[in-house]
């Protein structure tokens, strides 16, 4: 297949994928204009787009209307929390998972605790997080880190446990010590699993940030979502929801791009 043919096939697929959402948006818009749906509950796409434009670009003026020109900083608040919590989850989850997968003693000591905390939904941790950290950033970051931690640690454990035995033996016979074995063999061998865990964890991180901002902090996309609902700005609510979706999608794409670079050896098989 030539590059041109492949590109055309890709475009056709993209067109097919966009058709259904487009039809739905058109019906939604038509229903709004025909007065079938009350605009206070489900505003038409054109109204949502207008509200979004003002939220993103309008002059905040005296700052009395929170939905003028504040979109950028709102997104940044949430993104920064997700980033901080996610990085914490990686820094704790990856080494811990590798040690659990590698060392039977560590597994025996730590794994039961992790497995018993894991079934507690992230939302159930909210009162705990607020009680301990108060209405501050730290509570939100704690929730995000905790939510992302579990899939990362579980997948890192599986990756470290499943390193082919002969790779370990080969490294040992070539003189690698325990530290070199972990860093040069177990970690790289576990990386495909670790990336799987990170992608799952990132999805949970976005869930956690919205929940935390609804309840525990007064900024970010989750806070605006709930605040706009309370004052009846459903146009802003929908614009906010779409913003969360786009942010989650883009952060996943970034992670996949990093994964493709780091795991370049995984898809290197050429004819």
């Amino acid at each position: 297949m030539t590059a041109a043919v492949r590109r055309r096939a890709g475009l056709r697929e993209l067109g097919l994928g966009l058709a259904l959402p487009f039809v739905l948006v058109v019906i939604w818009e038509a229903a709004g204009r025909a007065g079938v749906v009350p605009q206070g509950i489900l505003p038409a796409p054109s109204l949502v787009a207008a509200a979004w434009r003002d939220w993103a670009f309008a002059d905040p003026g005296l700052g009395l209307n929170p939905y003028l020109g504040t979109w950028g900083e709102t997104v940044l608040f949430s993104a920064r929390r997700v980033f901080t919590g996610f990085v914490c989850a990686i820094l704790i989850g990856v080494p811990m998972g590798i040690m659990i997968g590698w060392n039977r003693m560590v597994a025996g000591a730590v794994d039961p605790l992790i497995q018993s905390l894991r079934p507690i939904p992230i939302t159930a941790w909210l009162p705990f997080a607020i009680a301990v950290f108060g209405i501050r950033d730290a509570g939100a970051v704690f929730l995000i880190a905790l939510g992302a931690f579990f899939p990362i640690v579980v997948n890192a454990t599986a990756g470290a446990r499943d390193v082919p035995r002969n790779l370990i033996r080969a490294a040992r016979m070539m003189g690698a010590n325990e530290r070199q074995l972990l860093l040069r063999v177990v970690l790289p061998a576990a990386l495909p699993n670790i990336f799987t865990g990170m992608r799952l964890g990132l999805g949970i991180a976005w869930t956690a940030v919205i929940v935390a901002e609804i309840v525990a902090v007064k900024s970010g996309l989750g806070y605006v979502l709930w605040d706009a609902y309370y004052v009846g700005r459903m146009d802003v609510v929908i614009a906010d929801m779409v913003s969360i979706g786009i942010a989650g999608f883009l952060s996943d794409r970034v992670l996949v791009a990093v994964q493709l670079r780091v795991l370049h050896w995984k898809q290197a098989v050429r004819a």
């Binding site: 082919p164 002969n166 790779l167 033996r169 080969a170 040992r172 016979m173 070539m174 003189g175 063999v185 790289p188 061998a189 990386l191 795991l263 050896w265």
Partner: peptide
């Protein structure tokens, strides 16, 4: 008592590091 570079091993499956 333990593996070491004085005894090199060639495995049946080459067991190279794929990365």
């Amino acid at each position: 008592s333990a593996p070491g570079p004085d005894r090199a091993v060639v495995f049946q499956e080459a067991s190279l590091f794929p990365w």
